[in-house]
Every structure is written in C-alpha cells, then in structure tokens.
Design a protein around this nucleic acid. Sequence first.
DNA 1: TACAGTAGAGAACGATGGTTCTCCAGGCAA
DNA 2: TTGCCTGGAGAACCATCGTTCTCTACTGTA
Lengths: 200, 200
Amino acid sequence: MPDREAAQDQALKAAEELFYSRGIQAVGMDAVRNASGLSLKRLYQLFPSKEALVLEFLDRRDRRWRQALAHHVDARTTPEDQVVAVFEWLHTWFSEPGYRGCAFINSFGELGGISPEVAARARRHKQAFRDYLVALVTATGRPAALGDQLVLLAEGAITTAAITGTSQPATQARDAARLLMLAYSRDNGERPDVSQQTGE
Amino acid sequence: MPDREAAQDQALKAAEELFYSRGIQAVGMDAVRNASGLSLKRLYQLFPSKEALVLEFLDRRDRRWRQALAHHVDARTTPEDQVVAVFEWLHTWFSEPGYRGCAFINSFGELGGISPEVAARARRHKQAFRDYLVALVTATGRPAALGDQLVLLAEGAITTAAITGTSQPATQARDAARLLMLAYSRDNGERPDVSQQTGE
DNA sequence: TACAGTAGAGAACGATGGTTCTCCAGGCAA
DNA sequence: TTGCCTGGAGAACCATCGTTCTCTACTGTA
C-alpha cells in the first residue's frame, strides 16, 4: 500500500487548495478526489468523514500559518522590529496569488453557527495569534493592551485585504502599529491617556 | 392578494435571521418557508431564486446597518466625538444577543470564491463604510490615511468580537482610535513620522 | 498455478436542496 | 350560480452530496 502519511498529505494539500479558494460547503468529496488523485475509498480510509477532513485541514493550516509567521519574525533581532515584522509578513501573505482572507475567519462565518468544532478551531487559532503578538509586544516593555490593539489592526487588515483584493491594508496597519508603539513608548509613559480627550 | 411588499418583508426578515445565524448554504428554502410563514410558491413569486433572496438580504442588511450607524453618530456634535461614536456603536452591536460578526465578511468567506455577485456586495458594503469613516475623519481636519487605519481597527474588532464572543474589542479599538487621533492631531503635525522609528 | 488481500473506478444509495407542479379552497365578476 | 383567477399546502422532480458497495485488477506468497 502507498504510504499512508503521503496519501494523507496529498489529500490535505488538495483539500486546502479547494476549501480555501471556494469555501468548504461548495467543495464536494468528489472534487477532493479529483484534485488529490486518490480514490473515494482511500479518502474514507484516511479520514472517516468530510468533517474530519475539514478539521484536519484547519489544524494543518493553523500549524503552517503560525510557523511561517514565526519564521519571518525570528529573522529580526530587536523586539520592536519583530512586532513590525508581523505586519510586513502580512503584506507578503496578502500578495500571494489567490489570497482570500483568513481560512479561520472564513470557516467561522460559514460553519461557526452550526459546527461547534469549527468554531472552536477558529477561537484557538485566533487566541494563539493573540498570545504570540502580545508576547512580542510585552518583550518591548509595552503593555499587553497594546498587543490587543495590534491584533485588531492585523485582523482588520486580513479581511480588508481579502475583500478589496489589495495588499495595501498591511502597510496601513503597519503604519498605525508604529504610531501606537510610539504612543506607548517610555517617552509618553506606559499608559497613554485615552480618557475623553476628544470631548463628550 | 396580501400585500406584496409586506410579504417580501416577512420573507426577508426570516431569511436574515436564518442566514445570519447559520450561514447561507446551511439554510434551505424550506427553512425560510417555515420561518416566514409563506408558501414556497409565494416565495418564488417574490424572489425568482434563492440567489436573488440572498442578494436582497445583503442589500437590505447593508441599508439598515449603515442607517443604524449613522443614526448613532448623528447624535454627536463635534467631529471628534462622531469618530469615537462609531466605536461605541460597535460595542452596542457586539453586545446584541446572537451577534456573529459582519454578514458581509461571513458571506464573502462562504460564497465570495464562487459568486461574483456576493463578492461585489461585500466590496460595496465595505467601501461605503470606509468612505463614511474617512469623511468623519477628514471633518476633524485629519488626513484620510487615519480614516483607513480606523477602518482596520473597526474591521478587526468586528471579527475578533465574533470569534471570541465578547464585546471588549470595541473598547480596545476605541482606545486605539483615540491614540491615533491624538497622533494625527495638529499638535503633532499633520503627518506623524512613521518612518523606521523602530529600526531596521 | 492458485489464492488472499488490497486498491481503484465508479455505480449505487439515501438524504437533502432548489425548483416546479398538482390539487384544492376561496373570492369575485357576470 | 358558474367560471376564473389567486394562493396555500405539500408532493414531486431532478440534481447533488456524503457515504458505501460492487466488481475487477493486481501483487505477493505458497
């Protein structure tokens, strides 16, 4: 029998391509079969159901995505640079052909309301990203609250880039991130005053 | 014959409830029939296909959403307050029971890859929101670039609130927005320096 | 050569979905 | 009253989907 692991890899590669580009419900197991070159029988030997394939697809994507991000960030030396590198990496991601947003946001929107498992994967993925970014931010000596704000910039850039079809949001988010880092830098005190300076 | 307009309203109300909470493909026309109290025959008299119903649902949601936002913002007097009011409105939106993110982001993720019409509605909706927010920002005397950054904060808050199930992202986004408005205020010059202050 | 086990190709099956059709009840003009 | 139109309820129809089954070909072994 051909290597089980290799076959799983083939299936998941095909599934990722299809699920990401067309959405999950729009892709039948027949399409996965054609794209992967595996037989339906083999597919169901490797994954007991489509749901299982979907969850594996998400897990695999989560791992790869975070690895790719960390790899890019690790190339930088200072903590500040590492934070900025997150947004630079977003830019290269957005520029990939076929970029269509975050697979977790997309599958949450599509299936989060009817599949608790899918919703949980999305939560886990976003939580991991948040923890990662907050760690980078606190390494610069700035508060976790800034990390949460940068998460919002990154998430906003991800969906805006997908819908508008440009990678510009990454640059805008990076610039905003730099301003916020400046606002939270020691020169301005650890806790910039956001209380009502605009009136009300 | 019962009022055509009233029947359409009934159908759209039911469709919105179902599509938003469960996703579009997961909701059959049978479910819309049951929820709306209309017969299938009547439904197909009012909308030639499910696709037409979906597009009408999106158009209607776009109108209502922007109206609700504008209504909240209009209650404020100063331009700065109006910008902040956007994020306060997000907070009340996120706090609604059954909040599950932006219907346009969700349907873009679900159908954007296979339905150009749905993708176009998402683009239009986001473009309108962007234009609105940029107009509010430029009314304060600040550059449009800040508006784009605030859009990212808002979009990020929308999806983060949906996936985490909290309304806290609205507050975080509002605080970040205040800091960015401060950074762009006349005291700091019209164009804050974001060039490489973090090195590299 | 005979045989057991595995895999591939694709038909088959049961469920569901979008869409249409049938049949019947009720209102209303002549 | 009679005939006609509209609408409701739901069956019917056809395609698709997830999943399983059948049949055949092949490989390795005694």
